Simulated scan of single mutants.
Amino acid sequence: MTVGQWGIRVPARQGEEMRQALLREGALDASLRVIRDGVFLILPLTGPREGAEHYEFEAHPGREVLPRHELVGGIAIMQDNDPDGAEKILTSRPSLHTVVFAEGEVHGEYRTREFRVLAGEQTTRTVVTEHGHKFTVDLAGAYFSARLSTERQRLLEQVVDGETVLDMFAGVGPFAITLAARAGMVVASDLNPKAIELMLENLGTNRVKNVLPILADARRLGEILPWKFDRIIMNLPLAGTEFLPEAVRLCMPKGTIHFYSLVSAKGEHTARIRELGGTVLSEREVRSYSPGQWHAVYDIVVK
């Protein structure tokens, strides 16, 4: 049986040292087998951390296999409505305070999702630690994806010191706060009041001063904002295509747009991007979503 879980790739010669360090932190998932990949090992983790990605691990024989779940801070999200399994997960991971079942997909203008608490505290609020930042999230109140941790670091490496950045669908602020380390200014917009409330909390927690939160419909940003931007983030996978014209209008010539979308074919949006005056620098899969569909990111330069 395989289990999807966070893992970290390390050189095999450092594997035992890293394994022991993770054990001391309570961050190693001892119920899963280590993966050997050539001269590297992939160690299973109990949650996201710097450098971690999602892998499929085999369970240790003789050890109880936990139901499939995803960890977001102190909350485990189950794929099945299994109260008994939820109790097993809760007792097996001391870092958890709640286990929930996702009753539906992300939907609506506010990008929210319904959850049922199966075990632990009656809350969907938790704190996620990511690359030195702490993000307070409310899974039922505002959009947040721990799986985009690596993607946020990839974009940070591309930001030139002093850039102006626009995050059109900022959620609780993880992209905005991450990129603020190099950007001169980040405008972080969202339509969801709860997302802005949590973003303000996260800006204070992380002592970030150069992010401007805006409660606004992304369709109206061109009417509100007096600037054009060097870099624009568009993380609205289900409906981002309709906002591409606005993003192009708001982007500086030779500026960059990072456009995230659910696709079922490579190059699905290339023709539309060219029509609007953009050139696709790269298209890559961020993660799988469902059979025949994946979460892709287009890195676009505007002519």
Rank of each mutant, 00 (worst) to 15 (best):
Met1Gln: 06
Val3Met: 09
Gln5Asp: 14
Trp6Gln: 12
Gly7Thr: 04
Ala12Met: 06
Arg13His: 13
Arg24Thr: 11
Glu25Asp: 14
Glu25Tyr: 03
Gly26Pro: 11
Leu32Arg: 12
Arg36Tyr: 04
Asp37Gln: 11
Leu43Lys: 09
Gly47Cys: 03
Arg49Tyr: 02
Glu53Arg: 13
Tyr55Gly: 04
Tyr55Val: 00
Glu56Ser: 13
Glu56Arg: 12
Phe57Trp: 05
Glu58Val: 00
Arg63Thr: 13
Arg68Tyr: 02
His69Val: 05
His69Gln: 11
His69Asp: 08
Ile75Val: 11
Ile75Met: 03
Ala76Ile: 00
Gln79Arg: 10
Asp80Glu: 14
Pro83Ser: 06
Gly85Phe: 01
Glu87Phe: 05
Leu90Gly: 10
Ser92Cys: 07
Pro94Asp: 11
Thr98Pro: 10
Thr98Met: 04
Val99Gln: 12
Val100Ala: 12
Ala102Ile: 10
Glu103Leu: 06
Gly104Leu: 12
Gly104Tyr: 11
His107Gln: 11
Arg111Thr: 12
Thr112Glu: 15
Arg113Phe: 09
Glu114Thr: 12
Val117Pro: 09
Leu118Arg: 04
Gly120Trp: 03
Gln122Tyr: 05
Thr124Arg: 06
Thr126Trp: 01
Val127Ala: 12
Gly132Ile: 00
His133Val: 02
Val137Ser: 03
Asp138Met: 03
Asp138Leu: 06
Gly141Met: 10
Gly141Trp: 03
Gly141Arg: 09
Phe144Gln: 05
Ser145Asp: 07
Ser145Lys: 00
Arg147Gly: 14
Thr150Leu: 11
Leu155Phe: 08
Gln158Arg: 15
Val160Glu: 15
Leu166Arg: 05
Met168Lys: 07
Gly171Asp: 04
Gly173Pro: 01
Pro174Leu: 02
Phe175Pro: 09
Ala176Met: 05
Leu179Cys: 07
Ala180His: 00
Ala180Asp: 09
Ala181Ile: 00
Arg182Pro: 14
Met185Phe: 05
Ser189Asn: 15
Asn192Cys: 03
Asn192Arg: 01
Asn192Phe: 01
Pro193Ser: 04
Leu198Ile: 00
Leu198Asn: 03
Met199Ile: 00
Leu200Tyr: 09
Glu201Leu: 12
Glu201Thr: 08
Asn202Thr: 01
Thr205Asn: 05
Lys209Leu: 15
Asn210Ala: 07
Asn210Glu: 10
Val211Glu: 13
Leu215Lys: 06
Leu215Met: 02
Ala218His: 06
Arg220Ala: 10
Leu225Asn: 05
Leu225Asp: 04
Lys228Glu: 15
Phe229Gln: 08
Ile232Asn: 10
Ile233Glu: 04
Met234Asn: 10
Ala239Cys: 02
Gly240Pro: 09
Leu244Gln: 05
Met252Gly: 02
Pro253Ile: 00
Gly255Thr: 01
Thr256Ile: 12
Thr256Met: 02
Phe259Tyr: 13
Val263His: 07
Ala265Val: 14
Lys266Arg: 13
Ala271Phe: 08
Ile273His: 01
Ile273Glu: 02
Gly278Pro: 11
Leu281Ala: 09
Ser282Val: 01
Ser282Arg: 09
Arg284Ser: 14
Glu285Ser: 13
Glu285Arg: 15
Arg287Trp: 11
Gly292Asn: 07
Gly292Gln: 06
Gly292Phe: 03
Val297Thr: 11
Val297Met: 09
Tyr298His: 15
Tyr298Ala: 02
Val302Glu: 12
Lys303Met: 08
Lys303Arg: 14
